[in-house]
């Protein structure tokens, strides 16, 4: 079977997975809540923060993207996987000449496509609100507010969205990995959330490592920092968008992308290790 055929199958499975996900009430309500939340950031107007208001709106939008994106990434992936298992749709597909890895890759891509949709909608809404408020503030403060260049780098809003999407990819792959050996949806979601928290906080252990004395504790912390991917790496929202002293260099963005891709692929392969043996 050729690579092209294999690619077609992955694409087909991803397509239906995505369509099924988009039609889920859960996705739509979460998307609505997130959009409403981002839109509600306009309430910062009442505090009359001046140009500071834009920072509040951005923090708020990025926070919503990070928070709801993480929830969606985990729950949607777990649900899409277990739906197919429980409804035996997986059985009809895997009874065809379809490799289990193709099935997993298709499921992942479907979920990842869903996250792309989510991320795009949130970043677009956020950019729209920022654009509107920026215009209002400039009108209020006068043209001198723009003397040093625009208040907002809109490209950065999308760059942050992209980096978060890369992180959601790792998260979805981790969820798929957990799902590959667990029997229930709930267990998968709970364990994946724990993984998310550990990955988000592992940098603390790593920072502590450098200050520790040699011994098994140091060894343990060292291992901890290596086993879990560093999600804090993608937490660059505070360093983007506004004209701060340092712009995020392109090489750093490339490194982050590579890091995200490597971990995503690795976790899908690890999921395959369990899934191969699993009774469908």
């Amino acid at each position: 079977m050729s690579a092209a055929e294999s690619f077609t199958r992955v694409r087909l499975i991803a397509g239906t997975t995505f369509l099924e996900a988009v039609r889920q009430k859960f996705f739509n309500s979460l998307l609505l809540i997130s959009v409403a939340l981002v839109a509600s950031s306009t309430f910062f107007q009442q505090f009359d923060f001046g140009a500071g208001e834009l920072k509040f709106i951005t923090d708020f939008g990025f926070g919503a993207l990070f928070f709801f994106g993480s929830i969606l990434s985990i729950t949607a992936t777990a649900q899409l996987f277990f739906n197919e298992m429980e409804n035996r749709t997986a059985l009809t597909m895997l009874a065809k000449p379809v490799y289990k890895l193709e099935f997993l890759a298709g499921k992942f891509l479907g979920a990842h496509l869903l996250m792309l949709c989510f991320t795009l909608v949130i970043t677009l809404v956020l950019s729209g609100i920022l654009y509107w408020r920026e215009a209002a503030i400039v009108a209020q403060l006068g043209a001198e507010a723009l003397a040093d260049g625009p208040l907002i780098r809109y490209g950065d809003v999308f760059l942050f969205g992209f980096l978060q999407w890369m992180k959601f990819g790792i998260l979805a792959a981790i969820t798929l990995f957990v799902a590959s050996f667990s029997n229930t949806n709930l267990y998968t979601i709970v364990v994946s959330f724990f993984m998310l928290i550990i990955c988000q906080l592992q940098y603390i252990a790593r920072d502590a490592y450098s200050g520790m004395e040699a011994g098994w504790e140091r060894f343990f912390v060292f291992g901890l920092g290596l086993i879990f991917p560093n999600f804090q790496l993608f937490n660059v929202g505070d360093q983007l968008v506004f004209d701060v002293e340092q712009v995020l260099p392109a090489t750093v963005v490339l490194r982050m992308t590579a890091y995200g891709l490597i971990y995503t692929i690795a976790f899908i392969l690890l999921a395959q290790l369990n899934f191969r043996r699993r009774e469908i």
Partner: peptide, 8 residues
């Protein structure tokens, strides 16, 4: 293959 009570 047709599984028992399939869902699509």
């Amino acid at each position: 293959f047709l599984p028992e009570a399939p869902y699509f």
